[in-house]
């Protein structure tokens, strides 16, 4: 299956600052790909490169088989980069009209996308009077105007209220299930977990992991509640990495070794009140990966 987005060794440097450092990224047709990372990790810079807004310092980038920013590629890509930017003195409808003129899109598409993002009733109001949620929805409508094969959305739920976030996520999921390929960036783990098929995690400009969401979550560990906890932690360290989590310890070890873990703890005079296996939350994986990256960089 040919990738719609192929990025190899992408680097972007601003003076002494390395914003993106050797990122590799592959987005396959029909998937919803989550580009996850903390603020300032390099997500928006990467997406700007993919849309041709900025030029990479080095590395190879192919989007829909062409170079980013080429007319043919832009015509098949819909995007919303950072906050949605429109002409404040024009109505939402007029903003879409002029984008339709730029993109050579028939005007009937405007009504379609306005309906899709539920903005038909406010379409004739000035953009400057829109709430943040309406602005985001208009941004998505603009991204869909060209009926694109690839949709690139940068933090699409930013600033939305819970209902708006839910609607936006449902819309993105629908786009993905409708055969479109979606690449979205987010710093919200739950969001990525809910709507993405695959995820790339970026931290400090470097890609630290690229997996199926389920694979990342499927890594299991043992949750241990024991006293005294400090002694238990040092004993458990012999099995694998141990993290404190509230009043429990989490050990990265194959859950099939639970009996052995229990025996060793008891033999060491430690009282074990809970021992169970658990699936790791994406949040844990994310923090683990991004913390390791920070430590490496530091």
């Amino acid at each position: 299956m040919d990738a719609l987005v192929e990025v190899t060794g992408l680097t972007k440097r601003y003076g002494d600052t390395l914003a993106v450092d050797g990122v590799d990224l592959t987005v396959l047709p029909g998937e919803v790909y989550g580009f996850l990372g903390p603020n300032g990790a390099g997500k928006t810079t990467t997406l700007r490169i993919l849309t041709g807004l900025i030029a990479p310092t080095s590395g190879e980038v192919r989007v829909l088989g062409g170079m980013p920013g080429q007319s043919g590629v832009l015509g098949r890509t819909g995007s919303m980069i950072e906050s949605p930017a429109f002409y404040p003195y024009l109505s939402g409808l007029d903003n879409l009209r002029l984008l339709a003129e730029y993109a050579a899109v028939p005007r009937r598409k405007i009504d379609e996308v306005l309906d899709l993002v539920d903005l038909t009733d406010r379409a004739r109001d000035r953009f400057s009077t829109y709430s943040l949620g309406m602005k985001q929805r208009l941004g998505v409508a603009a991204a869909l105007l060209k009926d694109p094969e690839l949709v690139i959305l940068d933090e699409p739920t930013n600033g939305l209220d819970p209902a708006g976030m839910r609607d936006m996520r449902r819309l993105i999921r629908e786009l993905g299930s409708g055969g479109r390929t979606v690449l979205l960036s987010s710093h919200l783990l739950g969001e990525v977990q809910q709507i993405c098929d695959r995820v790339g995690i970026i931290a400090a400009g470097r890609m630290v992991a690229e997996h199926n969401v389920e694979d990342l979550r499927a890594e299991q560990e043992l949750v241990v509640r024991a006293t005294p906890r400090d002694r238990a932690q040092s004993v458990l360290a012999g099995f694998g990495a141990v993290h404190r989590y509230d009043d429990t310890l989490r050990v990265q070890v194959d859950p099939r070794r639970a009996a052995e873990v229990n025996r060793v703890l008891v033999e060491a005079g430690i009282e074990v009140s809970e021992l169970r296996s658990t699936e790791r939350a994406l949040e844990d994986v994310f923090f683990e990966l991004t913390t390791e990256e920070k430590a490496d960089v530091g």
């Binding site: 700007r48 849309t51 920013g69 015509g75 995007s79 980069i81 930017a85 984008l99 730029y102």
Partner: peptide, 18 residues
């Protein structure tokens, strides 16, 4: 100032045409 340049440059036409 409005950031609309990025919006129009991610449509179909190239920078020179815009």
């Amino acid at each position: 100032t409005w950031g609309t340049l990025k919006t129009i440059l991610t449509q179909r036409p190239g920078r020179g045409a815009v």
